[in-house]
Design a protein around this nucleic acid. Structure first.
Lengths: 204, 204, 204, 204
DNA sequence: AATGAATGAGTTTTCATTCAT
DNA sequence: CATGAATGAAAACTCATTCAT
């Protein structure tokens, strides 16, 4: 309605993206409002027009950050693919391996959020929901595999949790030491071991 | 005989233990030197008699913290047990599940260290060595399983990495949402799935 | 035309002048940043916008302080006066006597700089240059007196040094005990004694 | 009387001498009680058995420091010499030049005392007495010169002040830049100029 | 008398936040 | 809307002084 289109949303994202970049490099604490402002190409004052405080930026980032991650998974699962679930999961895995290097740059942010979750109820709750949804999507996929007789009659939920844990753990290990292994292969091998544990003997 | 025995070692540990407690609750940044001092039952000045700075305490904590963790694993692996490797790993897993609640309290510290590793070469290197050693111990155990024909001829290294990742991931998920599952069972189920993936068919 | 003119230079001087006042009263060490801020009519934080640290203020003050002093002398010497050099030096002396009371207030600052010169190469070097220039100006004047046959053929440099030493010493004695003498007369008498020592007999 | 001789005086001097050394190098403020203790070969606690506080040490030093200086002059003047006063003063001057290098090391302490005098009545008063006595001794000598007809009928007091100022000023200039001149000659030249100003024509 | 571990008040410096322009 | 100069609360760290041994 207003003659000028609402620039607010754009600015808020501009700030969040700047924040991601700087936070990833310096951490929440070491990052100055000036750093974010400079990275966003705005003045320090402008930040406060869009976010009430540094903490508000961090809180908004929490959602922005994990939302993006979740959408990737969801998009994958919702694509009603014709391939076997086994192949779909290997696809998902390969995709993960492919973006690992890029993700590692952002992982310090995730770790800081995990650390904060230990003392902040709201952050913890958000992460709980995130992981709940994340596992639900995986479980849905695995359930499909059971129904198609690709997998044994296992607990889809528990298996999804296992897979999610494996992904998280591999990402952590990769982050700590990207040179330690041929991670692309390692990730595939890890998931293949798991899939063999849940496969019908026929598939072995 | 000497009038005053050297209390330096004792004090340093006293401070580190206090630091663990407070850091876990408040995080590195939110924790004031006064908080550590109070928790240790010392004055702020006394802290500086034993550690040059807050950062020095954190650096000392890094070693103290992961060393303890590693010793637990090492003690387990070195015990030359007669049980099957499968049973040993399930034992290790159950032990992990048993201390998970206790560990979760300390995980924020670990997460902060991971976050710092992203920007501090020394911390990163320390963690690399830690995980390297950690995986090596697990690989040793798994290799034993292969030699005893319990497991298929798999890559012991890659499998150890998988197991380590699984442990880390499960600990993370537990930390975020301790109520989400019957974690004791979940952890066992997860590892059992993996073990089935690597077992000789005879064991299925 | 620009909305806000650059106040940096003004602020820096404002701070230096405040610093002179407070340092003279309390000394470098006893002076709190808050004292300078209050004296300057600024906040403590503002000080740090213009000077990196307390030491930076002190360093800037060193130059500001002695520069002013030197300019006074230089202005005097450069004025190509027609009076005899003897009369010019007596003029300079009377001028010194006149501002002595005002200078005494600032002398604690000078003394602190001298003390620091004992352990700081940069400060020492600055003072060396200051006194070098100071003596050179006096020597120039005295040389003029020799050329005009007012003075005997003496070493102008050595005499300038003598005069400078006399000035410094008298200022010191005045500072320590302003009531001890009729200083205005004392200073004139002292310099007159010296001038008689260097005068051609004709002037006796 | 007591079986053990009183060690208190010895200890107090031991501490003062240590203090002189360290203060000269580091300044009053930068010097830690630990530095003095170490230099004196005592423990920090021991210092407090003999001096109530750091300030008490500094206060005691003030007396110790200038007293030594004064004794040197007094010893010189009291020696009822047969030489002409002119020669005696030149002797005194040469003696000054000879110890200048050694004195320079201690001058930072003197400067700190001068600076403190600006804000501490007690210190100022002590210095006033010191310089009063100092000038009186010189005046006594000069008066002798007048009585012996070596000097013109000048104001002995004012001349003593002039000479004292000259000494102080030369010491200051030497301290700031020991390489600037052949100071030994400079000092003699300076005083000779003055003496020529006060001499009877006969002696010129 | 002597020690040196412990104390805690005091100071510099930083930086999120505000607000006059 | 946007700016960036100014604010001042907060915290790491120091070191003179104390006191149990």
């Amino acid at each position: 309605m207003s003659p000028r289109p609402d620039v607010t949303e754009a600015r808020k994202n501009q700030i969040l993206e700047a924040a991601v970049t700087v936070f990833a490099r310096l951490g929440f604490q070491q990052t100055r409002m000036d750093d974010i402002a400079k990275q966003a190409g705005l003045s320090k004052g402008a930040l406060y027009l869009y976010y009430k405080s540094k903490d508000t930026i961090i809180a908004a980032l929490l959602k922005y950050f994990f939302m993006q991650e979740f959408k990737r998974l969801q998009a994958f699962v919702e694509a009603d693919r014709e391939a076997s679930v086994h192949d779909q999961l290997m696809d998902l895995t390969r995709q993960l391996a492919a973006v690992m290097h890029w993700m590692a740059r952002l992982m310090p942010i995730a770790f800081e959020f995990y650390a904060i979750a230990g003392r902040d109820q709201e952050v913890r709750q958000f992460l709980q929901e995130y992981y709940h949804d994340y596992r639900r999507e995986l479980a849905r996929l695995i359930q499909r595999g059971i129904e198609r007789d690709e997998f044994r009659t296992i607990d889809a939920e528990a298996t999804a949790t296992t897979l999610a844990a494996l992904y998280e753990g591999l990402a952590l290990l990769y982050f700590v030491d990207p040179e330690a292994h041929q991670w692309t292969e390692q990730v595939e091998t890890s998931v293949r071991l798991l899939l063999e544990g849940i496969a019908q003997h026929a598939s072995t």
